[in-house]
Design a protein around this nucleic acid. Structure first.
Lengths: 130, 130
DNA sequence: AATATACTAGTAATAGTTATCATTAAGGAG
DNA sequence: CTCCTTAATGATAACTATTACTAGTATATT
């Protein structure tokens, strides 16, 4: 993996985020620093950075993938109204059962995704008003 | 919601499945019985059936949504190699923490998605052979 | 049987992402 | 430092999954 300016700017921009931007959000922010960068480059680098464990690609509900600067294992809440994604505290660990022994199977379990969904605080408040 | 032949055939075909087909898989199966049906009709009816709670739409990792004839809450395992999705036993219940009290928030939690991912038994066996 | 309208087939449009390809630029070897 | 291999880039096309549109059809209520 070669070190390019594009890659490091993409990473820097993502790391300023406390939320979980989509590829096109990052694209428009990165373009302020690198106006000639192309969307494909953003996708390509996000893919490399996540497959090498520097960042995390989130495949939760909804139609867009999102990117998380924090590659450590943690859970998320997703708002089905505004599509925002919130981190749940990293020390929140749920004791998940060993499904292989439960089902007598020999799968290789690489990880788990736990997602809560509903209305975020803001959208919930708005719903009451309307 | 009106009762059409298309809708009931789509539901019947889905209910013969023990796995979790995609919309286009169902489309090609349904077409054997209703050769003139269109893909849009399949999507439309799957949407109605899932929003009325008869079936379940799965938005897990990967790029295609899948449909589950069983609308009861249960968890899934997803194979990242062959993209298949397996049901975990319905009596497997994990005690999930109340994230609102944990984070002092007033979100409205409508549900949770718990997904295990990795290599299914078959793909795991194949990997060892190669 | 008449009627209002939800649903359909066929098709176009959209959104998100990936592939292609000629050109550029990392970064290791000499 | 210069050369050279090749990974990465920008620009664009292609692709995949899904949704929208519309004239015509069929359901189910009156």
């Amino acid at each position: 993996m070669r070190n390019t300016e594009q890659k490091s700017v993409i990473l820097e921009v993502l790391q300023t985020h406390k939320d979980h931007p989509t590829a096109d959000q990052l694209y428009s922010e990165v373009r302020e620093r690198l106006p000639k960068i192309s969307l494909g480059t953003v996708y390509r680098n996000l893919e490399k950075l996540s497959s090498s464990g520097v960042i995390m690609k989130l495949e939760l509900g909804g139609n867009q993938k999102r990117f998380d600067p924090n590659p450590m294992d943690h859970y998320h809440f997703r708002c089905i109204t505004c599509s925002s994604i919130e981190d749940l505290p990293q020390d929140l660990k749920v004791d998940l059962p060993d499904i292989n022994s439960e089902t007598r199977s020999n799968r290789v379990i690489l990880g788990t995704t736990l997602e809560y969904y509903g209305y975020c605080e803001e959208c919930a408040a708005n719903k009451i008003l309307n």
